Measured scan of single mutants.
Amino acid sequence: MQRVNMIMAESPGLITICLLGYLLSAECTVFLDHENANKILNRPKRYNSGKLEEFVQGNLERECMEEKCSFEEAREVFENTERTTEFWKQYVDGDQCESNPCLNGGSCKDDINSYECWCPFGFEGKNCELDVTCNIKNGRCEQFCKNSADNKVVCSCTEGYRLAENQKSCEPAVPFPCGRVSVSQTSKLTRAETVFPDVDYVNSTEAETILDNITQSTQSFNDFTRVVGGEDAKPGQFPWQVVLNGKVDAFCGGSIVNEKWIVTAAHCVETGVKITVVAGEHNIEETEHTEQKRNVIRIIPHHNYNAAINKYNHDIALLELDEPLVLNSYVTPICIADKEYTNIFLKFGSGYVSGWGRVFHKGRSALVLQYLRVPLVDRATCLRSTKFTIYNNMFCAGFHEGGRDSCQGDSGGPHVTEVEGTSFLTGIISWGEECAMKGKYGIYTKVSRYVNWIKEKTKLT
């Protein structure tokens, strides 16, 4: 034993070699072989497995989906700052455009905790909710729209109204504003409101030439003092309507412009014939205590009207009353817009006519005020429907199939267009061939041609 100890002390290297040989010859039971080890760690190889990531292109799944990435790591994937920024906006807080917040056709661009709407022409605001041009839906104005110097929408209202708090709607500024039905039992019968379409306001006024200088022999019209197929109006439903009495009662109609003036057809009036105007009328054979009678003290036909040349060209006249009318729910003026808007309103496509005229061709006159909704007829169809001249200051309205029309005794009465609950004068009943005849239409004086003249002559002093 002493000898062994001496050998170990003198030859430590020998001992180490012996131990190493023993270990190498022993069977290893701690580690699995290569094949079995792979069965336990069965993990798919990654895209760049075996390579240094710093030297390969980034992978979106590896960089940002398996674990949260930084902007720089995302930049490695896209290799483009702009594309990385677009991805980053949604990656950080989701897609803010998912709810489609942009209105009126706006395009949404996502941002971090926010979004941006790219608005089409005519709109602005956070969600493109603000109209900035009158060309689109009248700028959301209830009545009139004008573009300011910086191309912003400025709404306005006709006389007797003021802008509401929203700067879009119009509200009454006087007790009985024009064009409004205020009798409670008839307010439910107000005709369907007309909503502004998209309009090209630059070209809204037709490029028409008034044929002022045409000389033409007097034409022989049949029954051209021209509501057939209409309905009984309720008291106060058309408070701007008046009836004219002269040699015979209810020979023509008219509309209240203001307390002192009536507008009617020029062919209705004769110099030297006494005319009485009755406002607030409903049943011409009954006294309903809503009527107001006034005498006409002055007749002003349009300066281009000449019955000797043509009885229905420039067929418009103004009547001055001896005493002002007292405005109330049964006696209310009709609204008159400017030339541009009167023309736009007419193009809405349908209007209402009213009167006490004959209820059928050569038949009896109506006792109760009649009204009828009539569609506008395109000019080409209008011209083809008659052998008589249709001037540019006239328009056609009615039904091709016949059966409904204005008729004798309705002449001078109103053709009105309702705009968001307020009625505007767009025409004056003038003439036609018979009444409600198939293929024939009622012919009306186009008020847009005469609004400046009306307003100039009827100013209240």
Rank of each mutant, 00 (worst) to 15 (best):
N166M: 02
E159I: 08
C335V: 00
S169Q: 08
F71G: 15
K89L: 07
N5F: 13
T458N: 00
K137W: 05
T85A: 07
P301W: 08
S182D: 07
T271S: 10
H303W: 08
F196H: 12
Q57V: 10
M437R: 13
G355C: 10
F360S: 14
P177S: 05
R75Y: 08
T264C: 06
L372F: 14
E142S: 11
K68N: 15
D223T: 13
P239E: 00
C382P: 01
V273A: 13
G413L: 06
G13V: 13
N213T: 07
Y22E: 03
A366R: 08
E116M: 09
Y391Q: 14
V278R: 07
T386P: 04
I390N: 12
V447R: 00
G254E: 00
K387I: 04
S25D: 05
E10I: 13
K446F: 02
E208R: 11
F345S: 01
I300D: 02
E124D: 10
P12F: 15
Y47V: 14
H34C: 04
N213H: 08
T225V: 12
D378K: 14
F238C: 04
T194G: 12
D198L: 07
E67H: 04
Y161P: 00
H289T: 11
A37E: 02
S217F: 12
V77P: 15
F87T: 15
N222M: 11
G254K: 00
F238E: 00
F176E: 02
V195E: 13
V202I: 12
D249S: 12
H361I: 13
D405V: 06
N38V: 09
V4P: 08
E285C: 05
S220T: 09
F78N: 15
V278I: 05
I297N: 05
Y371W: 15
Q2C: 13
Y371D: 03
V248M: 07
C134W: 02
K152V: 09
L319A: 05
Q143T: 02
N113Q: 12
E53H: 10
E53W: 04
Q237S: 07
N59W: 04
Q2Y: 12
N328C: 03
E281A: 11
T29V: 15
V447D: 00
R83Q: 15
G421D: 06
D232F: 09
V227N: 08
V451I: 08
P375T: 14
C396M: 02
A149H: 10
K446W: 01
E286A: 09
T186K: 12
N138C: 02
T158G: 04
E433A: 14
H361L: 13
L60C: 03
L383S: 15
V181Y: 08
H302S: 03
K362F: 05
A173R: 09
A436L: 09
P101I: 03
Y91L: 15
R364H: 10
E98V: 08
I40D: 03
I344T: 10
E76Y: 15
Y352S: 10
N151P: 08
F395K: 01
E54R: 15
S220N: 11
V248W: 08
S70G: 10
E193Y: 12
N36I: 08
V359K: 14
T386W: 07
E116Y: 06
S350M: 08
I309E: 12
I275A: 03
V248N: 10
P333Y: 00
